[in-house]
Amino acid sequence: MMDICIVSHSEKIAEGLKELLSQMAAGVNVRTAGGIDGEIGTSVDRIIEMFDSVEGEALCFYDIGSSQMNAEMAVEMNDYQNITIVHAPLVEGAFLASVEIKVGKSKEEIIASLKENFKEKA
């Protein structure tokens, strides 16, 4: 089953979203990299640790600015072929993807659904 990775400037946002997804799509593995030492920010090293823990494929959602840049940098630095960074709203996108993972949709189907629902380049 595909994982969901959350990159947020806030540990509380990342953990809160993980809690929401765990209840709404039980069984989908949600990984987080939020905040830096209890403060606001993102860390490429923490994102790399999160990506390294993914055994199969994962869709990665991010909140703002440098979280996207750091997630993309982590992918480029380590040539992660199994991580797909998704350009969709953090909460709504991760929620939709988690539910669709739970019902067995493929990565391609989920990305198409995200594009349709959010009119973004997912």
Rank of each mutant, 00 (worst) to 15 (best):
M24N: 09
A94N: 00
F95Q: 14
N82P: 01
G56V: 05
T42P: 09
N70E: 14
N82Y: 04
M69P: 09
I85G: 01
A33Q: 02
V86W: 01
S98E: 00
N29D: 10
R31G: 07
L90E: 01
E19R: 13
V86F: 00
L96Y: 11
V75Q: 09
G16F: 06
E92W: 00
L20S: 14
V103K: 12
G65H: 06
S98A: 15
I40F: 13
V103T: 15
M77C: 03
Q23W: 11
S22C: 09
S98R: 02
L21C: 08
E72P: 04
L20E: 13
I47C: 03
F61L: 02
E76S: 13
G41R: 08
V99T: 12
G41A: 05
A94Q: 03
R46Y: 10
I85T: 03
E76N: 13
F51Q: 10
E92Y: 06
I48A: 09
K18I: 04
K18Y: 07
E72Y: 07
K102L: 10
N78T: 06
Y80M: 02
G35P: 03
G35D: 03
L21V: 13
K18C: 05
I85C: 07
A33C: 07
I47D: 03
S43Y: 07
K18R: 15
M73A: 14
S67H: 05
A74E: 01
M24Y: 11
E57A: 07
I64R: 12
M24G: 09
I64D: 12
Q81G: 12
A94G: 06
R46P: 05
